[in-house]
Amino acid sequence: MFSYRRVKTDERDAADLADLLRMGRLAEAWIAPQDVREVRELVRYRHRLLGARTSAKAQVHAVLGKAGIQVPVNNLFGRAGAEWLARAGLHGTYRLRVDSLLRLIAFLSAEIAAVEKQTTGLLADDPGYRAVQAIPGIGPVLAAVMVAEFGDVHRFASPAKLCSWAGLTPRHRASDTKVHRGSITKQGSKLLRWACVEAIQRSGADTPMGRLRNRIVDRRGVQARSTAKTAAARKLLTLVYYALRDGEVRCLAERTRA
């Protein structure tokens, strides 16, 4: 009832906090060490740079649409796309803006590469960073995000607590015999949830996450794709938990019944 009482004074607050501390029920915050904070700074900055580059690419497409020019290549920012853009019939303000955006994209790409190189150097000797990359769908970039956001995985007693901390567990409200489950809580790091969903989209159908996702879609229909991705993300975090804790990944192979 601490947060619901009507009388709130400094003296009462101090006494209540002391009682919670005595009973071992005072919530504690984990402060990451300096090396973890440095990696977090890099992966979060890279994500912002990536968002800026994506925005610049979208603006190039928007300018071409305003000029009424249809793009004939699949990748506008590859080699073939760059050659086509140089010959595209853009004039005046449209040409100036596209050229400016292309220079900005090249600059942001160089900065992203530099940040990735620095991040890889900081995590080169981290056994958890190497172990996590054994999970299908997780490469160096997503592995760096997970290692940085989790920090010390030993502070979580189980994979279920890790999933709850990441905001991938459903809301649960119960009163007497009535139980209501809602959407996921989305607490914790938004960047971490993005990394989990990105890894799920990259994992194949023959992986534990892919099999779980497909079973849910087959049972509940295509309208359950988001639910299936969330369930697969929890499965992924279970593998990540053991990879960071033990230095190896469990349950990657399909279980065989005797």
Rank of each mutant, 00 (worst) to 15 (best):
R155W: 13
A160I: 04
I200C: 09
Q187F: 07
V141H: 08
D125P: 08
P159M: 05
G182C: 02
Q187P: 00
M209P: 02
G221W: 13
T169Y: 01
T169Q: 07
A233K: 00
V217Q: 13
T169N: 03
L142D: 03
R234V: 02
I216H: 11
V147R: 12
P208F: 03
T177Y: 08
I138P: 09
P159N: 07
E248C: 01
R181G: 00
G182Y: 02
T238D: 11
T207Q: 10
T238C: 13
R225E: 05
G204M: 07
K235D: 05
R202K: 14
A224R: 09
S183R: 15
P159D: 04
T227A: 13
Q201W: 14
N214Y: 01
C196P: 01
D126A: 08
L162S: 09
S175R: 11
A224E: 13
A233S: 12
P159T: 04
W194V: 03
A174N: 04
L123P: 07
V132W: 05
D126G: 07
M209I: 03
R193L: 06
G167E: 03
A124R: 15
S183H: 14
L168I: 14
S183C: 08
Q223K: 15
K178F: 03
A228G: 05
L244R: 00
R220Y: 15
D152R: 06
A131G: 10
A232Y: 02
V179D: 06
L236K: 03
I200P: 00
L122C: 08
A233M: 01
F150A: 02
T185E: 10
I135Y: 08
Y241N: 01
R202C: 12
L168C: 11
T185V: 10
T169L: 13
K186E: 03
A134Q: 15
L244A: 00
G151N: 07
I138R: 04
S158Y: 06
R245W: 06
T119L: 08
T185F: 04
I184K: 06
T177M: 12
R202Q: 12
G121Y: 09
V153W: 04
D206K: 13
G139L: 12
D218Q: 14
G210T: 11
W194F: 12
P140S: 12
I216L: 15
R234C: 13
A144K: 07
G128Y: 08
R220K: 15
Y129F: 15
T238L: 01
A144V: 05
R173H: 14
A148D: 03
E248A: 05
